[in-house]
Design a protein around this nucleic acid. Sequence first.
DNA 1: CCCTGATTCGC
DNA 2: GCGAATCAGG
Length: 166
Amino acid sequence: MNWTDERVELLKKLWADGLSASQIAAELGGVTRNAVIGKVHRLGLSGRAKAVASTTPRPRKPRPVPSAGSRPVVVGNTALAQVMRPMVEPEPVELPDPVANVVPMAERCTILDLTEFTCRWPVGEPGKSDFFYCGSRTKTGMPYCAYHARIAYQPVQDRNRRRVAR
DNA sequence: CCCTGATTCGC
DNA sequence: GCGAATCAGG
């Protein structure tokens, strides 16, 4: 997944909106929060709000590298994220939310698995085989994980705006 | 332990 | 240029 102009633009927007790097990474799909942060720095967008006052120059550390068999390292379910992204015609309302596809497979659970600390955000069609709950960890006392909470409590038109007019 | 951004440096 | 690994901090 390369940094197309469109993705960079979205990154800039979300960063300006104050979203965290991990949230932006989930929104973009196919990238980690490290990738987002790295890009932010390369774009010169860093220094948002409270710069972590690390006046102390961080000592560098030697990097032991696997060297031999370079492992693939799969990050998240990038496959699903990729499928969702290339939405050619943005239909206003009934689009499946790209959000649904950022939920890691490992976290997904049924209603029976839900606890006080698992995200209750439903994904898919209830009754269908692909239906599940997010299952990610929630903030204490919250019904949703940090990411879905943000969406759940966002005004509807605000949620749609991005898809419609981006 | 969860999370945040910052930084380095092999690729 | 990219981003994993790692850091410092909340």
